[in-house]
Nucleic acid binder design. Structure first.
Lengths: 259, 259
DNA sequence: AAGTGGTCTAGACCACTAG
DNA sequence: TAGTGGTCTAGACCACTTT
């Protein structure tokens, strides 16, 4: 129809920029390499810094980049596969490199959402609940922070209430919970943003994107415990193996170039 | 109450703003209600529009808000629980309201990442691969778009190559794939951003946050098929039930106020 | 045509890290 | 102290939906 339309559909600059940068990462950069700083990149592409940052944010969300204040922007390694086991053996065993580390154990308040998962009815008395904090490390990097809520009624044969709050008490509660046979578990995964305390544990800024894994552990008499684990969404790929771990080889090439 | 004084804290403005808005959503707004527009909200809180938008983006990421260009910002309903079944019956059955809908089926190219999951070795000939597009709907809203890669060698008894590309062919490939007994499946979940085609299917803008579920279906002779499904991260909560669906009652209150 | 959210700019200052 | 990414501003225009 006569004249040739150059760009019939206007692609946003930051989107196009993201594509260009993504291809550059594939071809010209190696994992761990430091990118030019944002001001220079913005100037190089002829856009405002805010626009450039919009593209970098996307790439960081996809796990391609890692940005650290005061340091710079580096090319991120492929995401770590983190097993979210379906079996029950995750209470103790598990791959040594990715085990949960008990951090603390107090008897504290329970969020409303968790209360209903535990089967608690209304406001009035519901008995004490152990709140265990655990962290998970992979390749030396923290990948997840967890709050595990265990009603004292789920571990009746435990006399650790008087033990000092801390990792030791956390371990004894976990051991006792492990004794009561668990019938199964329900699990859900959703996107969230890191609360201040989790962010600190994960070495990220508050609001960083996380994958929230909520697990309900079922005992003989209903829900025995509820776990809310937040995984770093930028560095983690959660794996649910019915028969081994999924291994994804990304299509990225790691080439030369040092500049 | 017109303007809310932001405390002189070290906390970033947008973060504090997000908290304030979140509490306001809990107490003063009902699901589906329309918020004041961004320019007015920004003025009301005494911040720049960009700062206000940073807070809104966070809340949208957490599934609390829904923003539509040309329309406005509304209070989002609680996330839909979408079952990512562990069993094999998801090929056909499944909850009627959340079933997959075949859209198309062509024989096309396979991304590098999927190639390695399928066990393909190097560049040269690997035989044709069916690429099936499916979508998933829940409560009338599209929640997921999937690309299912089925090597023709996985469905040898199929003579549908000559059938016209389309939903009909997709169904016959799925039926045939269902016939070969599947031994199990590996699955992984990670955060991503919607590609242009997926975004269109999901009624979102390109780059919208999605949960990417990669599934490897194992047959008697290795990987029989690979599925890459992208779920809307803002509206979906993926559930993995070992014994029924997880039901989360969010701590939000739906109160009065109509304005 | 009016009103909404989405994109983009060109600055400024702050918080953090490292030499 | 110099350099980085993180936050924030006050505008402008664009794409889209509804009236």
């Amino acid at each position: 129809m006569g004249t040739t339309q150059l760009e019939p559909v206007q692609e946003p600059k930051y989107w196009h920029l993201k594509t260009v940068l993504s291809e550059a990462l594939d071809s010209d950069f190696a994992v761990g390499e430091i990118l030019p700083n944002e001001r220079e990149l913005a100037a190089r592409f002829g856009v405002a810094r805010a626009t450039l940052r919009q593209a970098l944010e996307q790439l960081e969300l996809e796990g391609r980049l890692q940005r650290r204040r005061g340091v710079g922007t580096t090319v991120a390694p492929p995401r770590v596969g983190v097993a979210v086991s379906t079996a029950q053996r995750d209470w103790n065993g598990e791959v040594a490199d990715q085990a949960w580390q008990p951090v603390d154990c107090v008897t504290g308040e329970v969020p409303t959402a968790v209360r209903s998962l535990l089967g608690f009815r209304e406001e009035p008395g519901t008995g004490p609940v152990y709140v265990i904090r655990r962290t998970r490390v992979s390749n030396g990097q923290p990948v997840a922070a967890e709050l595990l809520y265990v009603p004292a009624s789920s571990v009746p044969d435990l006399s650790a209430i008087d033990a000092p709050a801390g990792p030791a008490r956390a371990r004894s509660v976990l051991r006792e919970l492990h004794r009561v046979n668990l019938k199964g578990q329900d699990r859900s995964v959703e996107l969230g943003s890191a609360r201040a305390d989790d962010a600190k544990e994960l070495d990220r800024l508050p609001g960083a994107p996380v994958l929230v894994v909520t697990t309900r552990y079922l005992g003989v008499a209903g829900t025995a415990a509820v776990s809310v684990a937040t995984y770093r969404a930028d560095t983690c790929r959660l794996t649910f193996g019915d028969s081994g771990a999924v291994e994804i080889r990304h299509e990225r090439q790691e080439q030369r170039r040092a500049s």
